[in-house]
Design a protein around this nucleic acid. Structure first.
Lengths: 228, 228
DNA sequence: CGACATATTGATCCGGTTCAAAGCTAGTGG
DNA sequence: CCACTAGCTTTGAACCGGATCAATATGTCG
């Protein structure tokens, strides 16, 4: 939506994002290459099959990376949380779409210039490598969740993953959080229909595992019931 | 299984693996850190919840990265092809198991020493970053496959992905190839039972999309029917 | 050849999809 | 401020695809 120069000094992810690996002058150099931008919910940051000439770090909010099937249905492939990096470096075209789930803020870079910076600053390359390793881990976990057999297991594991992602402390799941996704998006992610997602949530609530507050709020009542 | 010094000169992935980014002397240095090792089918390279003090590059064969569910069933989270890198850098413990699907050969490194090399040689860091980007792409594709609704679609997309992986040319799927996985492993990967996998394969053969040769051989007869 | 593991095929059952309708929620404008 | 709409969510009923249980077939290795 809007676009303006970076203000790293007040950036909430200034010591977690990839750029935090850089020292004073180098960081200032990188900051000159980027622009701050806000996104409204649903706004598309990168479209699929587009030029792929940009990349970004998420500062605030949440993004989704998704593909659109031949039949027109959307399939979410990953969620991006603050300090996350998006953009397919090294690839000629972007094959996935990146869009905002909630009101978000990003630092936007030209891909060419960012790749040059990766070349110039080894610490940036290593920081991105570290991020990628985490992304790989998250994605493998997601494969494990989506590949489960029953809808109940999928929803339970999904909720746990969301609780962990929402938590500030590394491993401890958050006791209550808001789902950043609509039922349709959850269904598209887990290979379930909207109706099944809804039914599983009511079932989990009836069995005392969770409590729903409003339409998107979740409270973990009995995390053990969700599978640890 | 066996273990011996590296012989980069005759390595089949010498110009595709991460180490190929290094020049003469640097490469020789890295080679001194690693050991060549062969694996028999099913042999475990890294166990889950273990020390995680090693990493490796696959030279020949195929590996699987998997997790074991509470109920004891195995869930395959990614396949690794020659030139692929395995090992969770930066993580304190390995959370997934890595094992050989077929007879394989790897270059095995101490994780500590490899991380030091990444620190020392920026080109290695960038090469690993490039590899990770590809792995991320493959894994997102896998999430898309596993998240599909019908068993038919899952199998079709899976076969196409395998055909592409088996192909030497980048995008063109191989016309015929061998599945490196048993039915149980395919099922565990896609969230299907052994029986369903078997039935889908016979159905795909009857409809003329594929031809099965022996137990694991697949010939693509009509790739379009598999979804492009 | 014989024995074991893996794969295929068949019959039944259940969970998740599908189709349909009614509740909610939030946003809009009178 | 409230009525009203549009989109999302929940709930219900019927159907169907995949799971499950069971038996047979095929391949593999001693």
């Amino acid at each position: 939506m809007t676009s303006s120069p970076l203000a790293c000094a007040t950036c909430p992810v200034r010591d977690r994002a990839a750029c935090s690996a850089l020292g004073g002058e180098e960081r200032a150099d990188l900051a000159r290459l980027g622009r701050h931008r806000t996104l409204v919910p649903g706004e598309v940051l990168f479209a699929a099959d587009e030029d792929n000439d940009r990349c970004a770090t998420l500062v605030r909010g949440a993004l989704k990376i998704s593909a659109t099937e031949r039949d027109g249905s959307e399939r979410i492939l990953s969620l991006v949380h603050p300090a996350g990096f998006v953009g397919e470096l090294f690839a000629p075209v972007a094959r996935f779409e990146v869009a905002a789930l909630t009101a978000s803020e990003v630092c936007l870079f030209s891909r060419r210039e960012y790749e040059a910076a990766v070349e110039r600053y080894p610490a940036l390359a290593r920081a991105l490598l570290r991020r990628s390793s985490e992304d790989l881990f998250d994605l493998r976990s997601l494969v494990g969740i989506v590949g489960r057999h029953s809808a109940r297991e999928k929803m339970a594991a999904f909720l746990l993953a969301m609780a962990r992602a929402a938590s500030s402390s590394p491993c401890q799941p958050a006791a209550s959080f808001d789902l950043p996704l609509s039922r349709a998006e959850i269904g598209g992610m887990l290979g379930l229909t909207i109706e099944t997602v809804s039914r599983q949530l009511t079932a989990l609530e009836k069995s005392g595992a969770i409590r729903r507050v409003g339409l998107r709020g979740i409270e973990l009542v009995d995390a053990a019931q969700l599978g640890s």
